[in-house]
């Protein structure tokens, strides 16, 4: 379904842009009264061109261009009744609407929890697992650090453990965005990410301070990460 929707969108976009390209290109086969007085916006006829930008379409010029076999000219003025592909464009608009709705439906179905309950390997559950792992790392670090006496060792431990968060778990949560939106709605996802990001930023700060060998700031930031991460977990129902 998603594939069909995507194909319809692609085809409609191509037809839509192609037909739009003719908006300022009236056919010279139109009646004179619909063309006379229009101003050219590009050379016409030839080569060498028989008329140039700024020239006005007069009966004589029209006759010359038609005799030269020119089928269309680019003009400055736009009018629906001169737009030869207006109906194509309208069809493209319909196609884009239908294709977009189809894709949206397919995405909803893809991420909707199944009747038998959510599959363990779904992106949303992977995000829950990743968040649980991040919280576990943050907690275990808080427990372990007081027992490490050397400041440099504490910093090294923080950098090493948070590397895993930055490299792997945060990425898993970010990649689960469509699934989380489907599960929580845009508003719910926004609230979840608000808390998660605040926690993540504190962890990033802890990493930076630890990399700079400033254990007190690293530990303060680590401690500050707990609350927003807990709130994020609450929102996610983890």
């Amino acid at each position: 379904m998603k594939l069909i929707g995507s194909l319809v969108v692609i085809a409609s976009l191509v037809f839509g842009t192609l037909s739009a390209a003719t908006a300022y290109l009236p056919k010279l086969s139109l009646a004179d009264e619909r063309l006379l007085g229009l101003t050219l916006n590009a050379p016409a006829g030839g080569p060498p061109p028989l008329a140039g930008p700024g020239d006005t379409l007069t009966p004589e010029l029209l006759a010359t261009l038609r005799a030269d076999g020119v089928e269309r000219v680019r003009v400055k003025e736009f009018a629906f009744d001169r737009w030869s592909h207006a109906w194509w464009f309208a069809l493209a608009v319909l196609g884009l609407t239908a294709g977009g709705v189809t894709i949206k439906q397919a995405a909803r179905m893809q991420y909707a929890p199944s009747a038998a309950g959510e599959r363990r390997e779904s992106p949303a559950s992977a995000a829950r697992d990743a968040l649980a792992r991040i919280r576990e790392i943050a907690r275990s670090l808080a427990d372990e650090l007081p027992s490490i006496r050397d400041e440099h060792d504490r910093c090294r431990t923080i950098v090493h453990r948070l590397d895993e968060v930055q490299r792997q778990h945060s990425l898993t949560i970010v990649e689960a965005k469509p699934a989380l939106i489907a599960a929580l709605g845009m508003g719910g996802f926004a609230e979840f990410m608000d808390h998660f990001s605040a926690g993540e930023r504190n962890l990033n700060r802890a990493w930076s301070a630890a990399a700079d060998n400033h254990a007190p700031e690293a530990e303060r930031s680590l401690a500050a990460a707990h609350e927003p991460l807990d709130k994020a977990a609450e929102r996610l129902g983890a």
């Binding site: 929707g5 976009l13 884009l96 294709g99 894709i103 949206k104 995405a107 469509p178």
Partner: peptide
């Protein structure tokens, strides 16, 4: 603009 807005209807 119309095409751009409609493209956003999808995923």
């Amino acid at each position: 603009a119309l095409l751009g807005a409609l493209l956003g209807l999808g995923a």
